[in-house]
Write a protein that binds this DNA or RNA. Structure first.
Lengths: 184, 184
DNA sequence: TTGACAATACCGTCCAGACGGTACAGTAGA
DNA sequence: TCTACTGTACCGTCTGGACGGTATTGTCAA
């Protein structure tokens, strides 16, 4: 659709995420982002005419990326089990230290409305999962547990040990009916 | 210990939570809190010599309240099943619209370090649960699911319908304590 | 009993700094 | 020439917090 922007926008978005992670979500200022991206503040405001637009773009890019990644993982194992693909992708995402989407906190502080696209995205994804998962109870429990894992990563609660974490993931995958093997 | 402070402090704390909820976590300013509490900014800074102290107190009070409530619920049913008490309390907490601890976002924006007490509290509570719950897998899954529920409440993702929510809760409680059934 | 002092609990004002955003002149590459 | 910036200067607003003042209550010696 759009003719592949010259990566200035992407550089800025990445810089914003970096600043939020490293300087804290409360210190995501335009100056800081511009510095981090290696461009001037004027240049930043040329690409994103307001801070609000920047935040919006951050959310949208995140959603696009996640959606693409999900499609990829799902296709890679023959479009058999969407829930298990969702779980595996989410777990993977939670392990990348570089991810740490703490820019979300900046967005909320700026204006909670920025999360609206995220909400509808989540709701739609859940509907999709519901349509494709026979066991509603298992879906509910695993979906919420993944949401919990995401939350704990975001807040950097290090409540679980590595083994506990692994045991959890195994349990979730088996609840999701991975490998055509349905437990209990 | 302390001779029951004249509830100015409590009033301020409550006001802070209100402001965060109503004006958004990014607009939790000392002026706003003072206005809301019906005292002057000077008075506020007398009770909490800095914004940081206010945030800290907010976190500490939350932890104290949760701990007391847990103790109460746990005692009320004969100290039989800590996990199930934890689940019931958390679910209840998530239903109170008045709760909506969005002041947490303000605290994070201010300085992520404010969550340190919360982290250690959670870790300790989890250890306690682990010691008292025979089925580790069930504990992991239910604990994480509750964490997910909390997260969804906090972010106001309304992904689940009421029935789905109820089904989830029933599943979690049955996973937690196979013995007694739930009346609700 | 009273007067002196002090601690408590606040009020109201002021200020320096940070931040978002504007304006605009200049410039290097396609 | 147009696009995509850079760089600088600047403005208005908001915010934390320092500070000086004040009203009320308590304490205690004379």
């Amino acid at each position: 659709m759009k003719p592949r922007k010259p990566n200035s926008r992407d550089k800025i978005l990445a810089a914003a995420a970096d600043v939020a992670r490293e300087a804290g979500p409360g210190n995501l200022s335009l100056d800081a982002v511009a510095n981090r991206a290696g461009i001037s503040k004027g240049g930043l405001l040329y690409n994103f005419p307001s801070k609000a637009k920047l935040m919006q773009a951050l959310v949208e890019q995140h959603l696009r990326d996640f959606d693409n990644a999900l499609e990829e993982v799902h296709s890679a194992d023959g479009r058999k089990n969407l829930l298990s693909a969702y779980i595996r992708l989410s777990v993977e995402e939670c392990q990348e230290t570089e991810a740490s989407a703490s820019w979300i906190f900046s967005a909320i502080a700026e204006d909670p409305e920025f999360l609206t696209p995220l909400k509808t995205f989540k709701r739609k994804l859940f509907e999709r999962l519901k349509a494709k998962t026979p066991d509603l109870k298992a879906l509910l429990v695993t979906y919420l547990a993944i949401e919990g894992l995401r939350s704990m990563t975001l807040f950097e609660f290090h409540t679980l040990e590595d083994e506990e974490r692994q045991l959890l993931i195994d349990s979730l995958l088996s609840l999701a009916g991975a490998d055509s093997n349905i437990a209990r």
